[in-house]
Amino acid sequence: MKTFSTTARLREALASERRNGRRIAFVPTMGNLHDGHLQLVRRARDLGDIVVVSIFVNPLQFGANEDLDKYPRTLAADKEKLFAEGVQYLFHPGVAEMYPNGMGVQSIVSVPGVSERHCGASRPGHFDGVSTVVTKLFQIVQPDVAVFGKKDFQQLAVIKKMVADLCMPIEIEGVNTARDEDGLAMSSRNGFLSRAERELAPFLHKTLQECRDAIACGFDSYDELERHARLALLDAGFEPDYFSICDAQTLDKVTLATEEIVILAAARLGATRLIDNVTLNFNPSADWGMLAAQ
């Protein structure tokens, strides 16, 4: 595995691969890799001849009171994991490489609509930071396909819309959420949980599942379901940010035209912010109200 910290050196290496007709698959990460990230790498290996992984903790997507300084950085361990997975190229730039003129004068890529609700509402500017850095990484790597996890469902929706709107010739592949045995979605931030919080954390996924099951059984008072779920999380010791039943394509309210529902949730447990989601497909051969859970 070759590691690069500069754009010019990586571009030179990948240009050679491209001239030789190799298909390039890309996995952008912020490091502190766990098995969820490695599932993305394995999928990228299936989709491309060459796998490029980036590790960059992007300050542009962190708010003033968020955990940028304490975000875990485990480069040595990450390299070992990527090498074991057969990754050919690791891109590990510094902040000065990605933002040579400073972030204050950086051009910003903003994706309207899907970025404004849910996490976008509670973390102003977050998705502008995500879409901007991903655009820059796409320009640097120029992949044929890029792989993202579905755990951050809204982020995936933002990236898909950005690529479509800006006519980027890149396939976007979403990979199902990797979970621990008790159902907790794998996350780099799970390491911040205390032992007691870690035992409680799977309740978030359980609440999402119960809401999905209620809809699958025909309960369609979505506002009531959302209120009940928020109260259940609050009673269990969480601080709910949002719990939203949405159209999976628009991330807006469910309508009679909705073909797939996504239930999105974010909540704090102690100092740690957790996100998760579940989806539900409407059976296209049945009437409205007849649902088939994924």
Rank of each mutant, 00 (worst) to 15 (best):
271 A>E: 15
288 W>G: 10
60 L>S: 02
1 M>W: 13
283 N>H: 12
236 A>I: 04
7 T>F: 14
45 R>V: 04
185 A>M: 01
290 M>A: 15
245 I>C: 01
24 I>P: 12
147 V>Q: 10
38 L>E: 00
122 S>D: 15
64 A>I: 10
57 V>H: 00
50 I>S: 13
277 N>L: 08
194 S>A: 05
129 G>K: 12
73 R>H: 03
153 F>Q: 06
245 I>D: 06
161 K>V: 04
218 G>I: 07
198 R>A: 07
213 D>N: 14
109 V>G: 09
165 D>F: 08
173 E>P: 14
105 V>S: 13
127 F>S: 01
89 Y>R: 03
87 V>L: 02
129 G>M: 07
102 G>R: 03
164 A>M: 11
67 D>Y: 02
219 F>L: 13
84 A>Y: 07
21 G>P: 13
129 G>H: 01
210 E>Y: 10
51 V>W: 08
162 M>D: 11
150 K>S: 01
247 D>L: 04
148 F>H: 01
102 G>T: 06
113 G>F: 13
71 Y>Q: 04
163 V>T: 00
227 R>H: 15
129 G>L: 12
206 K>Q: 12
16 S>K: 15
152 D>I: 09
52 V>Q: 02
273 R>I: 04
25 A>H: 00
168 M>L: 13
102 G>I: 04
157 A>Y: 04
138 F>Q: 02
75 L>P: 05
38 L>D: 09
277 N>S: 10
188 S>V: 01
262 V>S: 10
166 L>W: 02
110 S>G: 10
268 R>Q: 14
239 E>A: 08
65 N>A: 06
109 V>I: 12
79 K>F: 14
38 L>H: 05
103 M>V: 07
217 C>S: 14
15 A>V: 07
161 K>W: 09
198 R>P: 02
174 G>F: 05
24 I>A: 02
48 G>R: 01
157 A>V: 09
113 G>Q: 03
16 S>R: 15
278 V>W: 09
227 R>V: 15
118 H>I: 15
124 P>Y: 08
77 A>T: 13
43 R>S: 10
157 A>P: 09
38 L>A: 10
253 K>G: 11
